[in-house]
Write a protein that binds this DNA or RNA. Structure first.
Length: 525
DNA sequence: AAAAAAG
């Protein structure tokens, strides 16, 4: 029911492809591929690995497992998809398999930044611990605390937690961490981004200094390094992929169109036969909902995932997507990192992420296990800064992607004035919203059915202003820019520069019958 | 700018 977990290792011999591509820093020792059976794991664990179909450990597994078994602290620089999770769950199972837990005193603790990740790690323990008599508990928010308390009272070997709920329960006295001798801090960079570090420090302070600590982070920024120094003792450092690098098995592309055309262009892209399934990222929770509803309305099999949804819905949506029941998952950055879904053909960025690092994390959801992934991003001209930050980080430009029937805009559009003072306020779905002129105004070349107007049905008809004859110099200047780039102009806002009222070519989408109103507000300020 | 995580 759950597809093969690409985070757990490489099925059969597929490793060499993803392993070498993803790890330019690794010496080329693919000739002598290690075997799981050489790593010193005991028979019950080995049997579970065999049954899961894994033969060769991934580089991080091959390197980390022996050191964890030795009792060393480990500092792992690795992203999910490198096999990191099994890299710590397998040796943990081995270490813990000796004895049994006592009530309210978990023997090991794994900290995860999101509930989804916690669940994923729990699945890993179920999978590889099936022939062991160890138990685990999930301590996460959004679910009944009474139930979690019960499990703790029975004694757990592995406690998998998100920081908030753990501290909450600890302060209520439902938990003792004095016997916890094995600590995993996963996705430390993410914890940092999310402001969890004070919580993590607090939790680490509750643990005995006589412990083994495994610390993982996708990047090794100075602040992360400082934390690692604080939490770890003489760690074995393992790096399996360069931070901020994008695996070359991902084909990336960028499509620049008017903000208001993004949904329509996306639908066009989703209809491509090559798109088997995809995660679609938005920057805002509200936009996740809006986009998902729009897609469903247009007949796409899509589900939404973000942090404001009830936990039960989050889990079930994720499961349905993993099972292939949903073809598209529209989500916020709740799923940008770590969530491991095998066999994703595409990742779409409906919005370019605010932080360039997140681009790398998002698109890393595809192109796993040696298969070529596709990461396509939509942007509007005013996202130029975001795009440039990303391109700087990854060290090369994101190539423009040709989409049939879509005429792309040029970055120079960014210079266009946007909106007035009142923008972003009182943006209800009503007609009070500021006029939305200019776009499609004076676009005689555009046939009616290709007009974007239906997309913004709730908006009043564009207020047509006659082209002011003033600003002639400006107009000529802008026009020259447009000519030079060979791209059409589009605009929005309450002030309409003269150049925008010039005749322009409308972008065209293959007209389709279902392309009717999915009114959503104009884009937020 | 936003999202995530505690209730």
């Amino acid at each position: 029911m759950v597809p093969p977990d690409t985070d757990a290792g490489s099925p059969g011999g597929a490793l060499s492809a993803s392993g070498t591509v993803d790890t330019p820093d690794e010496p080329a020792e693919a000739a002598a591929q290690p075997l799981f059976s050489d790593l010193g794991l005991s028979e019950p664990i080995q049997r579970a690995i065999d049954e899961a179909g894994y033969i060769h450990p991934t580089p991080i597994q091959a390197q980390a497992i022996p050191y964890v078994l030795m009792g060393r602290d480990v500092l792992g620089v690795a992203q999910t998809g490198t096999g990191k999770t099994a890299g710590f769950t397998l040796p943990m199972l081995e270490i813990l398999s000796g004895s049994r837990a006592r009530a309210r005193m978990p023997r090991s603790l794994i900290l995860e930044p999101t509930r989804e990740l916690a669940l994923q790690v729990a699945e890993n323990f179920v999978k590889y611990g099936k022939y062991l008599k160890l138990n685990h508990a999930l301590l996460i928010g959004g679910e009944s605390m009474a139930e979690q308390k019960d499990v703790l009272n029975r004694g757990v070997d592995v406690l998998i937690a998100t920081p908030g709920r753990l501290i909450d329960l600890f302060e209520r006295g439902g938990l003792l961490l004095t016997q916890t001798r094995l600590l995993v801090i996963d996705e430390a960079d993410r914890m940092l981004d999310m402001g969890f570090i004070p919580d993590i420090e607090k939790i680490v302070g509750m643990l005995s200094p006589l412990r083994q600590t495994l610390f993982f982070s996708a990047t090794m920024a100075p602040e992360i390094r400082r934390l690692a120094d604080m939490f770890l003792q003489n760690p074995k450092e393992i790096t399996v992929s360069r931070p901020s690098s994008v695996a070359t098995t991902i084909e990336a592309g960028l499509v620049v169109v008017d903000e208001d055309d993004k949904r329509r262009v996306l639908r066009q892209m989703l209809r491509d036969d090559a798109v088997q399934n995809a995660i679609i990222f938005c920057n805002r929770k509200r936009d996740v909902d809006v986009l998902c509803k729009s897609l469903v309305k247009h007949g796409f099999s899509a589900g939404a995932l973000h942090g404001d949804l009830p936990q039960s819905v989050r889990f079930s949506t994720l499961e349905r997507f993993k099972a292939g029941d949903l073809k598209f998952l529209v989500c916020s950055d709740v799923a940008a990192r770590g969530i491991d879904i095998g066999g994703l053909s595409h990742v779409f960025n409906f919005d370019l992420p605010f932080h360039a690092e997140d681009y790398v994390h998002r698109i890393g959801r595809t192109g796993r296990a040696g298969r070529t992934g596709h990461a396509y991003s939509l942007a509007s001209p005013h996202d130029r800064g975001l795009a440039e930050a990303i391109e700087k980080l990854i060290g090369h430009p994101i190539p423009r992607l040709a989409v049939e029937g879509v005429t792309q805009l040029d970055w120079s559009e960014e210079a266009r004035p946007r909106g007035g003072k009142g923008r972003g306020r009182g943006r209800e779905k009503d007609d009070r919203r500021g006029p939305k002129p200019a776009r499609s105004a004076a676009a005689p070349a555009a046939p009616a059915e290709a007009s974007p107007a239906p997309e913004t049905a709730a908006a009043p008809p564009p207020a047509r202003k006659p082209a002011p004859p003033r600003h002639h110099r400006e107009r000529e200047l802008e026009d020259a820019t447009v000519q030079a780039n060979g791209n059409p102009v589009t605009g929005f806002g309450t002030e309409v520069p003269a150049f925008m009222l010039l005749p322009r070519r409308q972008f065209t989408i293959t007209p389709s019958a279902d392309d009717e109103s999915t009114h959503t507000a104009d884009e937020p300020a």
